[in-house]
């Protein structure tokens, strides 16, 4: 067992976990944050993507024990109270989901790519979005509306970044 202390969605979380606990298991079973989905056993589907210290990672492929002191954000931690995050709002407005299983991972990957491209001053084209979604699999939508959602959210998020400056 390892005692870990990390920040999850802005709140401190402490637990004793078996050393083989994956971050996805810790979030879903210890924290009851079941918005992070587990869609595969092979680290390929991306339904489990969360942010660790500001980077998108597959929570099914990281040990909880390795995250002492880390800052973790899950799909439950991005809305501001009742106000959806612009990425969530854009998925809703663009019908960017059908069954919704891949959606938490899509949204967390979407936010990560927008942040990275904006930090580098690069344009996030539809083609770039498709390339960036390499590690997120959707069995329902055919991706078109997911790409549209992320494009829309990127505009909204850059507007927000400019307004904040």
């Amino acid at each position: 067992m390892t005692q870990i202390k990390m920040t999850v969605n802005g709140k401190s979380a402490t637990a004793d976990v078996p050393d083989n606990t994956l971050l996805s298991e810790f979030l879903r079973e210890n924290m009851r944050l079941t918005g992070t989905h587990v869609g595969c056993d092979t680290s390929q589907c991306g339904a489990c993507v969360v942010h660790v210290d500001g980077r998108a990672v597959k929570s099914c492929t990281v040990l909880a024990a390795s995250l002492e002191g880390a800052d973790v954000t899950t799909i439950e931690g991005i809305a501001n109270g009742k106000d959806l995050h612009p990425m969530q709002a854009a998925f809703k407005a663009n019908h960017g989901l059908q069954c919704g299983f891949c959606t938490p991972g899509m949204i967390m990957s979407g936010i990560d790519m927008v942040n990275r491209y904006q930090a580098e001053g690069q344009a996030l084209t539809a083609e770039a979005i498709r390339h960036e979604l390499e590690g997120n699999i959707c069995r329902c939508t055919g991706y078109h509306n997911i790409v549209k959602s992320i494009e829309d959210a990127a505009d909204e998020m850059s507007g927000m970044a400019q307004a904040a400056e």
């Binding site: 680290s43 991306g46 993507v49 660790v52 980077r55 998108a56 990672v57 597959k58 492929t61 990281v62 990957s109 990560d112 790519m113 990275r116 960036e132 390499e134 590690g135 997120n136």
Partner: peptide, 9 residues
């Protein structure tokens, strides 16, 4: 290599 989340780790 792989995808963005794989490259993060």
């Amino acid at each position: 290599i792989g995808d963005p989340a794989v490259r993060s780790m």
